[in-house]
Design a protein around this nucleic acid. Structure first.
Lengths: 340, 340
DNA sequence: ATGAAAGCGCTAACAT
DNA sequence: ATGTTAGCGCTTTCAT
C-alpha cells in the first residue's frame, strides 16, 4: 500500500500549535488544567490538520483502546441481530468500536482470543453465548476485565449479566393457555443446561401446578435452537395417545416451523391446536395466523448490556449484578379456547 | 482493571529461549532462515509461556494488524446477516478479526472512520452499503487501501467489487411470469440510483419487450428496502384501472409483506395474483404459499468478497475487477398461470 | 500550566 | 543465521 499522505501525529500538531506534545495529549484527553486559549489553539490545529488519534498507539501505552469485543455463538439469526443492534447503538453513542468474534472457532482459538482481548485489544467484552463455561470466564474474572453476559438467567455468576424475566414470561404464556381451557400443553424447548430454557420449563411446570394440572414429561420435547428443526418433535407430540391441544414453543423461529408443520398436516391453527412462541421476532407478527408469543426484549438487552459494560469500564471494581428486563405476553391469533 | 498476570512479551520469550528478540520476531513471522532447532525451541517457549503477539504493537510498527473492517448500512436483516456470515468464515479461516462499523453514524464520523481504518486500524475494508458515494471511496483509493464493495452491480468503479447477475435473475423471473401468460406485471423495487435495483428494472423491461409487452410506468412502484413497507404500494397497483395479475417484488422481505397484504385483502396467492421475490431468504421457503424467488447468493458474495480482500492485502496493486456470482430462479408455489 | 523524556510491544533495517 | 538498535504514536511520570 503506497502512502502518499501521511496521517498527522501528535508531533505534527505540537509543532503547528507551537506547544509540546504533552500539551497536545492533554487536549486530546480533556485534561482540566490547560489555558483555555492554548486548548483552543491546539483544537483548531487538530481540526485543520485532520488529526485523528491513533488507536493502536493509545492502547499500546495502556490507555483505552476504544474498542469493545463481542463474542457471539452464531451470526444470522434475528435474535442475535436484534441484540447486536442494541449494542451497536450504545457503542456508537459513546464512540466505541465493535470487534466481532464468532465462536464457531476452535476451542484453542477461543482462549487465545480471550487473552488478546483482555490484553488491551479491547476495553471490554460482551458475550452472547447461551452456555458460557466458567472456564471461559475465569481469565476475564481474575484479570478483573470488564465483561457482561447477555441473555443468561442466573445471577450466581461472578460476572455482570443481563437477562429477562423468563420465568414470568413462560408462566404467563402457559397460564394464558390454561385459561383458554387447555389441559394438555406440549412444550418444545432448547437443550438441557441452558439457564434461560431451564427457567422457562420451570415456569411451565409451575403454571400447570397452579391450575392443578399434572406435569407429564411426555409433553416435553427438546430441540437445538442453534438450528431449530421441529418437524419430528411435533410428530412425537401428536402421536401421543393423549396428544396436546396446545404447543408452547420457547422460540419463535421454532414456533413458526411448528405452525408450518401443522399446516402441511392440514391441522388448523388455532382451530385444531393452539401455538405460542417466545421472542416476538418480526416474522411472528406477519405470520398467518399471527403468532401469540412472549416478547423477549432482545434489543433492550443489547443496549443495557452495552451500557453496563461502559459503566464498568469507567468505574472498575463494581461488584457484579444480574439485571432483568421485562418480558410481556403478546396476544395474536394463534391460540383459541379449547371447547369441551 | 488490576492486572496480576502480565502477558508475556517477545522479551520474555527471548530470555526464556535464550535468543534475541529479533529471532523471536522472526519465528513469529515465519521467517525462512532460522536454524530449525532454534525455531522449535522458541516455539516451545512461546507455547509454555502462553505467548500471544500484541496486535496493537504490531500494527503500530506498520505491519499487519490482523483486522479487517466491515462497513454496513444496517444490522438486523437476513440479507446482511448472510453476507456477514460468509465474510466471517473466510476471515476466521485466515486468522483475521472483524471490526464492525455501521453507517447509521454521522457523515463526519464516517470520514474519521475511513481514515482510522486506512491508517492501520485494519488491513482492509469490506463495504456493504447499497449506495456508496465515490467521495467515501476516494480516500481509500488514493491510499491504495485494500477494499471491496459487496453487492453492487457495476464495474465502472475503481474499486474491487463483488455482485451477482441481477440482470439475468430479474430477466428470468419476469420471463417466468410472462410464460405463465401474465401480461400485466407489477414491479416493486428499491429507491432510484442503486445499481443493483436499476439493473433489475432494466431486465424487467427487457423481458417484457422480448415478449412484445409494452412497458407501463404505472406498474413500477418504488419502496425503500432499508425498511420495506409495501402496503400502500400494493394498494396503488391494485387500484389501477388495469391492475396487474402478478407482482415482482425485488426483495423477499418486501415480497413477504406483499403476500401478507394480499392475504388480508382476501386476494389469494397464487390463484388471484402471482408473486415473485428476490433474495431467497429462509422465510421465503417456509412461507405459505412458498415464495417463488430469485436466489441471490448472499453468503457466497460474502465469502468471495473476503477472499478477494485478503488476496489484495497479500499482493497489493492488482487492478480492480468486478466479480459476478450467479443468481438462480427458485420456483415454489406463489405463481400460477393466468387463464384467459 | 507546561515541557522533557521514558517506554508500551513489536518489526525492520543494519550490523556481524 | 542471529543480534543490536531505532523508532511506530501515544500517555504518563517527573520536572519546572
Amino acid at each position: 500500500m503506497k502512502d502518499n499522505w501521511k496521517a498527522p501525529t501528535v508531533i505534527d500538531v505540537a509543532k503547528a500549535a507551537d506547544v509540546s506534545i504533552s500539551t497536545v495529549s492533554r487536549v486530546i484527553n480533556d485534561y482540566k488544567h490547560i489555558r483555555p486559549e492554548i486548548r483552543l489553539r491546539v483544537q483548531k490545529v487538530m481540526e485543520q490538520l485532520g488529526y485523528i488519534p491513533n488507536r493502536q498507539a493509545r492502547s499500546l501505552v495502556g490507555s483505552r483502546s476504544g474498542v469493545v469485543g463481542l463474542m457471539v455463538h452464531e451470526l444470522g439469526t434475528e435474535y442475535v441481530a436484534q441484540i447486536t443492534k442494541g449494542i451497536d447503538e450504545v457503542l456508537f453513542e459513546n464512540d466505541y468500536d465493535l470487534m466481532l468474534y464468532t465462536t464457531h472457532r476452535k476451542p484453542e482459538k477461543e482462549v487465545t482470543y480471550m487473552r488478546s482481548i483482555a490484553n488491551g485489544l479491547a476495553d471490554g467484552l460482551l458475550i452472547i453465548v447461551p452456555s458460557v463455561g466458567d472456564s471461559y470466564l475465569e481469565p476475564l474474572r481474575s484479570a478483573d476485565f470488564p465483561h457482561v453476559l447477555v441473555d443468561v438467567d442466573t445471577d450466581n455468576h461472578n460476572s455482570w449479566s443481563v437477562g429477562s424475566t423468563n420465568w414470568q414470561g413462560a408462566y404467563g404464556a402457559t397460564n394464558y393457555l390454561l385459561e383458554l381451557n387447555h389441559r394438555r400443553i406440549g412444550i418444545i424447548t432448547d437443550q438441557e443446561g441452558l439457564s434461560v430454557s431451564e427457567r422457562r420449563l420451570e415456569a411451565y411446570k409451575a403454571a400447570l401446578q397452579s391450575h392443578g394440572v399434572k406435569f407429564d414429561p411426555a409433553l416435553v420435547q427438546r430441540d437445538d435452537y442453534a438450528s431449530p428443526f421441529t418437524g419430528h418433535l411435533v410428530e412425537a407430540l401428536l402421536s401421543l395417545e393423549d396428544p396436546p391441544t396446545a404447543i408452547f414453543t420457547t422460540c419463535d423461529a421454532a414456533a413458526l416451523q411448528v405452525m408450518e408443520t401443522l399446516r402441511l398436516k392440514n391441522i388448523r391453527v388455532p382451530h385444531d391446536i393452539s401455538v405460542v412462541g417466545f421472542d416476538n421476532i418480526y416474522q411472528a407478527s406477519i405470520a398467518s395466523p399471527g403468532l401469540t408469543t412472549v416478547l423477549h426484549p432482545m434489543y433492550s438487552m443489547g443496549r443495557t448490556a452495552a451500557e453496563i459494560l461502559l459503566e464498568q469500564i469507567k468505574k472498575p471494581g463494581l461488584s457484579p449484578k444480574h439485571i432483568q428486563l421485562e418480558t410481556q405476553l403478546i396476544i395474536r391469533e394463534s391460540c383459541a379456547a379449547r371447547l369441551d
